[in-house]
């Protein structure tokens, strides 16, 4: 399973390093919308692996199909071609898997449920007894500092607090694979950094396998073990490289470190090319 044929022009040596334990394999994944002349290729033969407990960022300019890839892995939309393997077993089309957790970019917190009822939602529908549910919800709220807002309705919360509710609503079901679609994209810089700190803390504890979609290079560097860089439309795999930053990371201190700055500027130039292409369209 180790060496997958990456379709990037120049695979960086790091990307091909054999990983001991592959959790998710994306094999020559295609997605086209429409048919005939109106057919638009959104994702073009993208392949990559994610190891167990690895935090991978899928980075690319807007409209490069990175969210489309994520949604295909989640089973939310059918794929046009290719395969997705979870633990080596192929995923059926449109199948939603138990071990996968998903955090949306848009606010999908249920406004008619209180904060605690939102966080407890997954446990409730799984039939977890009320007593155990309460305890786990209380713990989850404590982890993200929302204990005081347990009974509040989401409309009274800020965007950052709501996204913490959404995050815990997903994490409380203990997904082994976590898919995140620009979850902090709508937040201001300060709140975003705070969310990075919280997410890193939570992830250090459970070490879920994460696929994190973003167009923010700083975010990808802060969070991920590995960055998969996609080209502008149609989405193709352009580069796949490790982030050589120590863990555990401090989301704020990291931003001030010289390695971060060096990495950032190095990738920025490669990425800048792709961003310019989208702008030119």
């Amino acid at each position: 399973m180790g060496a997958r044929p990456y379709t990037t022009a120049e695979p960086t040596p790091k990307a091909v390093t054999a990983r001991k334990d592959v959790r998710v394999s994306v094999l020559s994944l295609d997605k086209a919308f429409g048919r005939g002349d109106a057919k638009v290729t959104a994702v073009d033969k993208v392949s990559f692996d994610i190891g167990r407990g690895e935090f991978v960022a899928l980075l690319g300019p807007s409209g490069c199909g990175k969210s489309t890839i994520l949604n295909m892995v989640a089973g939310l939309i059918p794929r046009t071609g290719g395969d997705i393997l979870i633990d080596g077993k192929p995923m059926e089309q449109g199948q939603v898997r138990r071990e996968i957790g998903y955090v949306f970019q848009r606010d999908t917190v249920f406004p008619w449920r209180s904060v605690e009822a939102n966080v407890g939602y997954g446990l409730e529908i799984a039939g977890v007894p009320a007593g155990e549910r309460r305890a786990r919800v209380a713990e989850a709220l404590d982890q993200v500092g929302l204990t005081a807002f347990a009974k509040a309705f989401p409309r009274t919360l800020s965007g950052g607090m709501r996204q913490r509710v959404a995050l815990m609503r997903t994490l409380i079901t203990q997904p082994e694979i976590l898919l995140m679609d620009e979850p902090f994209g709508a937040l201001d810089t300060h709140t975003k950094l705070e969310m990075h700190r919280i997410l890193l803390q939570l992830w250090e504890r459970e070490r879920q396998t994460v696929l994190f979609v973003t167009h923010d290079l700083g975010e990808a560097l802060t969070l991920a073990d590995r960055i998969i860089l996609l080209s502008a439309r149609p989405g193709r795999l352009k580069e796949d490289f490790e982030v050589p930053l120590e863990r555990p990371r401090d989301a704020v201190a990291l931003r001030e470190s010289p390695e971060f700055a060096r990495l950032f500027s190095h990738i920025w130039h490669s990425l800048g090319e792709e961003f310019r292409k989208t702008k030119a369209e």
Binding site: A74, L76, V96, R98, I100, G101, Y102, F104, R106, T108, F110, W112, R113, Y121, G122, I125, A126, A166, R169, T170, T173
Partner: peptide, 24 residues
Amino acid sequence: DQIAASRLLGANSWTVTRTVVIPS
């Protein structure tokens, strides 16, 4: 997206109706 979120959290069709479609 709220329906998708509910499905991804393990809801079947009836649960989606009961816990998302009806309240909203």
